[in-house]
């Protein structure tokens, strides 16, 4: 089992607010890990630290065996390997669905256009939106937008995918299609870290679940253990509220 990402003693503050406190976390290749916890517990910040959208104050982030330091590493290269899906999709509104997907391969990887378009269309096929390649994001439903966003992240062929509350901004009837797409991805062996409030999904799809509270990891375990037999009082309390 190959280690994909390891976090050691990670700390992050926003001003006086200490958001992440000595976080230790390891994710192996093909693991699916869900981060759960109340709002403000630091899960999203932790995820954002992993692709350096937030820069940690101290601690180590080791990616694929190499410690990444924002001072010495080209973060643009690191981020190519770390896909990210946002709560609010953040599709590019001035580009069509296909243009959204092929933008980074074309501009960053300098993939030739024919290849990029071919791969882009395959990815859209995979998320079930092949027929929408030519429309602008404003014409799509929330669920469709999020699936395009997933295809866009996959287009860079990342080693790991980060999901920041991917279904929180969706109407309830659209959540299923996005979770389905993510489930397919998990089955293919993609390494995934998912911040979510969908406990059913975490329990069913995630290999591991991490419960965070107040900037700390309270409990980490196999999803079935954490949900069925939580060890910590706080975890029990949280689960009794959300399940």
């Amino acid at each position: 089992m190959k280690e994909m990402i390891r976090v050691e003693k990670l700390n992050k503050s926003f001003g006086d607010l200490h958001v992440l406190k000595d976080i230790d976390l390891t994710v192996n290749e093909s693991d699916v890990l869900c981060l759960v916890g109340a709002s403000g517990s630091g899960k999203s910040t932790l995820l954002r630290c992993l692709n350096f959208l937030e820069i940690r104050d101290n601690g180590k982030i080791i990616f694929d065996g190499e410690e990444i330091d924002p001072k010495t590493h080209n973060l643009n290269q690191v981020r190519q390997k770390v896909g990210m899906v946002f709560q609010h999709f953040n599709l590019f509104p001035h580009k069509t669905v296909l243009e959204n997907v092929i933008e980074a391969p074309l501009m960053v990887k300098k993939t030739n256009k024919v290849t990029a378009v071919k791969e882009g269309k395959e990815l859209l096929e995979k998320v079930g939106l092949a027929d929408k390649f030519d429309v602008y994001p404003s014409k799509l439903s929330g669920g469709q937008k999020q699936r395009v966003a997933i295809a866009r992240a996959l287009a860079m062929k990342p080693d790991i995918m980060l999901f920041d509350e991917p279904t929180s901004a969706l109407d309830p009837e659209l959540v299923g299609e996005v979770l389905e797409t993510m489930k397919d991805l998990a089955k293919e062996g993609m390494t995934m870290i998912i911040v979510t409030h969908e406990m059913g999904f975490a329990k069913e799809v995630a290999d591991y679940t991490v419960y965070m509270h107040d900037g700390k990891i309270v409990e980490r375990g196999l999803s079935k253990d954490l949900f069925n037999n939580p060890k910590e009082e706080r975890t029990k309390e949280f689960l009794s509220k959300v399940l």
Partner: peptide, 30 residues
């Protein structure tokens, strides 16, 4: 222009300048 646009560009490995030129500026011009 929403900060999420910049974050999306950066998360795909685009540099700050490229994100500005390809993602933010075209929308800002409009």
């Amino acid at each position: 222009i929403d900060k999420g646009q910049t974050e999306a560009g950066r998360s795909l490995g685009m540099s700050g300048i490229m994100t500005m030129r390809r993602i933010v500026m075209p929308q800002a011009m409009r």
